[in-house]
């Protein structure tokens, strides 16, 4: 019998483990950490290669501030609505005693729809709610209601929010479903036998238990919408003034090429998504004090 491999010296085994983890670490550094840090550092370097705050200061123009503001509003609205509607649908499917096969169908569909973002989604909404879209036409010819004359525009805040919901709601559904499954049946029964109505159960027990998961998903949905560009670009081309499209234009050199300003725009995006996550961490740390 030859010596078993396990008899190798601890040092050699340790280095072998590192060899297995090394590709992952190198990959994370090369394609996540370094590019992002290098880019963000660029926000503080001027054309002459010196440290400067000029790029940051250049962000404070009306157009850029307006872009950030509308991006925050769209991301916020689509995240909050997506989370609320997704939660309601998840509760309906899981706790509403609907036929069991419905749940499997909805979860599968959610997997598809949450990944059906980008350019094709934009096409679908143009075909639905665009000026020649099916719903627009049916509303006009059958109900005599002109959506666009009433002030609706697919290329607006509400139009974009409505489109984003198509992937935000399913994402919420997918993430929150396991948390709802974790609500024990006995909790609701204990509340009932103590005199609580279904509403009181959700008010005092059910929703507070789900709250940290809801918040976590909310910040994820926000980041998801805030960085999304393909859907908006497919919908509007470069005409809509939101931050990712502005940055896209900067990178393509469609607008005045200013690498420092582009980096500053990116820094602003990262800071805002980071902020959303920090708010989540702070609130959930307080909400989760009853957890291990």
């Amino acid at each position: 019998m030859t010596q078993p491999a396990a008899a190798a010296s601890p040092r050699r085994r340790l280095s072998f483990e590192w060899l297995g983890v090394a590709p992952f670490i190198v990959f994370a550094l090369m394609f996540l950490a370094f590019p992002t840090l290098y880019l963000l550092a660029g926000a503080f370097i001027g054309r002459d290669g010196q440290f400067t705050f000029d790029n940051i200061a250049a962000l404070f123009t009306d157009q850029i501030i307006a872009a950030y503001w509308i991006s925050i509003r769209i991301s916020g609205a689509s995240a909050i609505l997506g989370a609320a509607i997704g939660l309601a649908m998840a509760l309906a499917i899981i706790r509403g005693r609907l036929p069991a096969p419905l749940r499997a169908a909805v979860m599968t569909f959610s997997g598809v729809a949450s990944n059906f973002a980008g350019v094709p989604l934009a096409f679908a909404f143009i075909a639905t709610l665009g000026r020649l879209g099916l719903v627009t036409i049916i509303l006009k010819t059958v109900f005599g209601f002109d959506l666009y004359r009433a002030g609706f525009n697919l290329l607006s805040f509400w139009g974009l929010t409505l489109t984003y919901l198509y992937f935000q709601i399913p994402l919420m559904l997918l993430i929150i479903a396991p948390a709802i499954d974790g609500l024990k049946k006995e909790w609701s029964e204990a509340a009932q036998i103590l005199g609580a109505s279904p509403w009181q159960f959700w008010r005092y027990i059910g929703l507070p238990i789900l709250w940290p998961s809801v918040l976590g998903t909310l910040s994820l949905l926000f980041a998801n919408a805030f960085g999304a560009i393909a859907t908006a670009y497919g919908l509007t081309g470069s005409s809509l003034n939101i931050v990712p499209i502005l940055l896209y234009a900067q990178i393509r050199g469609d607008a005045l090429q200013n690498p420092g300003l582009g980096a500053a725009l990116a820094l602003g995006m990262v800071l805002i998504t980071a902020c959303a996550n920090i708010i989540y961490l702070v609130i959930s740390a307080r909400a989760e004090r009853w957890m291990k």
């Binding site: 996540l32 590019p35 990712p244 582009g262 980096a263």
Partner: peptide, 21 residues
């Protein structure tokens, strides 16, 4: 690390690649 790509938008990653590489 594996959560980062959900938080850092793709457009920022690719911009970093273009600048760095």
């Amino acid at each position: 690390i594996t959560l980062l790509p959900l938080i850092i938008p793709a457009i920022i990653l690719v911009y970093g690649y273009i600048r760095l590489y």
